[in-house]
Amino acid sequence: MADLKKMKGELQSKIALREKSDKPEGRVQVKVAMATCGIASGAKEVMEYMVDEMDKRNIDAIVTQTGCMGYCYAEPTIEVNLPGHEPLVFGYVDIKKADEIIEKYIRNQELVEGIIPMNYQTIEKNK
């Protein structure tokens, strides 16, 4: 606990720095599906990787958990919410895929394979 208190100052300055950064529109949000199906397929490793790598690569992101979205066949699944974009759900995410999503989609908004079309809009809905 004493070490944690020592770390506090360092972490606080890091957060302050981040808040002053040039992206006021918000942080990248990643939700990892963590129900039975997700956990059994390796969601824990994917979430750990996401938390660690976003930090290492200096991407301002918040990684949280969500329940089963009904895509048990495609687990582990993650939802990525880039500020100003529609949320996207990716399936069959392993460490390699997670790396690709970070580098291509989160960094450069380049689409990568493995998107589950869950929130597409139909013409009827748009009317």
């Binding site: 606990m1 944690l4 506090k8 360092e10 972490l11 957060i15 938390v51 930090d55 918040i62 990684v63």
Partner: peptide, 21 residues
């Protein structure tokens, strides 16, 4: 809760905190 008190203000979701704990 004790961890939260020790790092007051720094969120528990902060990767540095997660790694340490």
């Amino acid at each position: 809760r004790e961890i939260g008190e020790a790092i007051e203000g720094v969120p528990l979701s902060e990767p540095g905190v997660i790694r340490y704990v």
